[in-house]
């Protein structure tokens, strides 16, 4: 395994009961690489990235994250999650905590960082996502796009090497989508390893190093964005692209 590999899927299979969700997944993600995962709904793309921080368990094959092979032991899972941050479709901010408190909770109680230091660091990240003026607001007082940006800052406060995004803009209005995508572009420019499930093809073109197209639990095509959009190699990807462009 290469030293600069961040995530490595090796013949990975996952089942939900008898349903075969992920079929023989093989994929290497290099450090600093930006991967966009797309595909029709139900194709397993969310499940794929949820395996990376062990929100889902896989049944056969191997998955290495930052050189650690993921198994089902709590110790390993904890170690891997220390390297991986995640943003969810519905932001999942804690409703009873302010933006700042959302960002400092895990640093203070998981990493045992002194409160003052955690707050200073959280303010830096909130500034990075342009939310420093809203540090003391509760999630219910923020718009969707603002909540998602706080959620990104919250993940960054854990100093991850890898960031996972599970349809981060699907629940947002067009205006909020661009403010969240701008933050994600900044993050990509900063060299973060990213795996992003998204239907934002403009974003994929702009920042992705590679696009992974999935259908029915399989990786159908891995291609660079220009090649993928201009000249898809597989019939299924071509069909998918036609559908999202024509709507």
């Amino acid at each position: 395994m290469l030293a600069d590999t961040a995530i490595k899927f090796e013949n990975m299979n996952k089942y939900f009961g008898t349903f075969h969700v992920l079929k023989d997944i093989n994929l290497d993600v290099a450090k600093g690489e930006r991967i966009v995962v797309c595909g029709p709904s139900g194709s397993g793309k969310s499940t794929l990235i949820r395996c990376v921080n062990a929100l889902e368990q896989y049944q056969s094959g191997h998955l290495y994250v930052d050189g650690i092979e993921l198994d089902e032991t709590p110790g390993t899972i904890r170690k891997v999650r220390n390297h991986v941050g995640m943003c969810f479709q519905h932001f999942n901010l804690f409703p009873h905590l302010t933006a700042l408190e959302n960002c400092t909770l895990s640093p203070i109680f998981t990493h045992k960082i002194p409160k003052a230091e955690a707050e200073k660091q959280a303010m830096d990240y909130l500034a990075k996502v342009r939310m420093e003026g809203f540090a003391h607001k509760y999630p219910s007082q923020l718009s969707g796009g603002q909540q998602q940006r706080v959620a990104i800052a919250r993940s960054l406060c854990m100093k991850p090497d890898i960031m996972l995004f599970d349809e981060p803009t699907s629940a947002l209005d067009p205006e909020s989508i661009s403010e969240v995508l701008d933050v994600m572009v900044d993050l990509a420019d900063g060299g973060m390893t990213m795996m992003c499930v998204t239907h934002e093809m403009g974003f994929a073109r702009k920042v992705a190093d590679r696009v992974v197209f999935m259908d029915a639990g399989e990786i159908v095509e891995v291609n660079d964005p220009e090649g993928f959009f201009a000249n898809p190699q597989e019939e299924r990807s071509a069909k998918f692209l036609k559908q999202i462009i024509n709507h």
């Binding site: 929100l55 999942n92 998981t110 993940s155």
Partner: peptide, 12 residues
């Protein structure tokens, strides 16, 4: 989703 968030943030 709250439990998943707690897990993703590695909360004890």
């Amino acid at each position: 989703s709250v439990l998943e968030t707690n897990a993703a943030l590695n909360l004890t």
